[in-house]
Nucleic acid binder design. Structure first.
Lengths: 243, 243
DNA sequence: CGTCGTATTGAAGCGTCTCAACGTGAGTGG
DNA sequence: CCACTCACGTTGAGACGCTTCAATACGACG
């Protein structure tokens, strides 16, 4: 049953951060879930909404983005299975950005009320979820650096390495290759670059033999060189809970 | 006594978010504080540190920044009295960026252990502090948009309006004027722009009669026009706890 | 009164944008 | 099964915002 699979994924994800005891586990498994399927490019929640549920990605990829003046759009994050992109809506009641699907998605919706009740009773789970939102913020900080300071090619390399590194933690990569159905326009919206220029930057990366990017698959050929070019230090992802 | 003043400021700040009861208040007032003074441009904590205390700004201004390759630096946030810039270090144990003073500062250091103990016993305080870190993240998101999408002049206007709007909440402005001891280099490091170009952008803003910026004071002449130019919508600051 | 950090100005160069045309591949309907 | 469509990727050319370098001006401070 899909609900159980989703809950299992959630338990697994949170167990990676802290040693949950049986009561914590039971509290998680008691969460009421609503499973929903969505097609590509559908809005999940929009800016200005006051959602009463959080959304966990079970399958597929989700984008967080913000509309700026003149119809421009900034992508703020790419989310993978296991992520809860709008966890912050638990305490920030009006959404200041929007959530939409990139690909076909399976989503699990969890009522705020149930999460809040759980958090009050189980401080360790509160801590684990809080930490999740803090890592979110750490990634935002790195994106500010990326967009603000790095050259075009370095920015792109950094973004791709981040996605790769995070996907590796859920076992969704294989020898530097991973599925990621992104368009050049979306890449540009994530790093503040026109899609035309994205195209040229990708050609440079390809010409250097660093990576290949095609129909919804990315292959990294030379991770070491790419990391150097990107000025990539994965500390900001806080993957090790001991740190 | 300075400790009491600092605690009072903390209580006031957190009371603005939620209705604290007497027990919450007492728990806050029982926090052990160490007051420290620092001169301008001193490092408070550095990237890679594992702090065992959080730092609250009592007086003065604090900068969060991250070093990028080639000695470049990105400023991530400007912090004002009442802020706790490294609250995230409670659960993200290794610092991925650094904290330093802009001006002369009075800081109050609170041990993590004391905060953690308080949080476990008083869920409402946990919620209020969690919310604080979520607002932090919301501001980071807006900065990504700012640096990624807006034109130079719009970016600068947005930054200044953000500082102004936040300072207004603590009563540190007067008719559009406020003290803020920032250099053009720092402004540039915050919005991803060379200090030379910052200078020219500020001249444009001055020439349009929108604002004046001089020796540690900024004066906004035409807030309406400035907001329009900046594409500024203060929703992202989440100043109203009901929203 | 000299020094040092910051602000200001000019000029050359380049990274990136915009506009516009064209190529390509997947999906759709006649 | 082919023609059509549509979204996405690719290419070229010109314009412009911004950077860098370098020189000069200003203002606070010892």
């Amino acid at each position: 049953m899909e609900k159980n699979a989703a809950l299992a994924a959630l338990v697994k994800r949170l167990s990676a951060t802290a040693a949950l005891n049986d009561e914590d586990r039971r509290a998680l498994e008691a969460l009421p879930l609503r499973i929903e399927r969505k097609g590509p490019n559908e809005t999940i929640v929009a800016s200005g909404d006051r959602p009463s549920l959080c959304c966990m990605v079970v399958n597929g990829f989700v984008i967080r983005s913000k509309a700026v003046a003149d119809g421009r759009r900034q992508i703020l994050a790419f989310h993978q299975p296991g992520d809860i992109p709008d966890l912050q809506s638990l305490y920030l009641h009006v959404l200041d950005h929007e959530l939409s699907t990139m690909s076909e998605c399976v989503l699990a919706f969890i009522p705020h009320a149930a999460l809040r009740a759980m958090i009050t009773r189980r401080p360790l789970l509160a801590e684990v979820l809080w930490r999740d939102t803090l890592i979110d913020a750490a990634i935002f900080r790195e994106w500010i650096c990326n967009v603000g300071q790095r050259s075009g090619i370095s920015r792109m390399a950094h973004l791709i390495l981040e996605i790769y590194t995070r996907l590796k933690t859920i076992g969704a990569t294989k020898d530097g290759a991973f599925r990621f159905p992104v368009t050049q326009l979306q890449l540009g919206q994530a790093i503040g670059m026109s899609s035309v220029h994205v195209n040229r930057i990708l050609q440079e990366l390809r010409a250097e033999g660093l990576l290949q990017i095609g129909h919804s698959e990315i292959v990294i050929y030379d991770e070491r060189k790419l990391r150097e070019l990107a000025d990539f230090d994965q500390l900001y992802l806080h993957l090790d809970p001991a740190l």
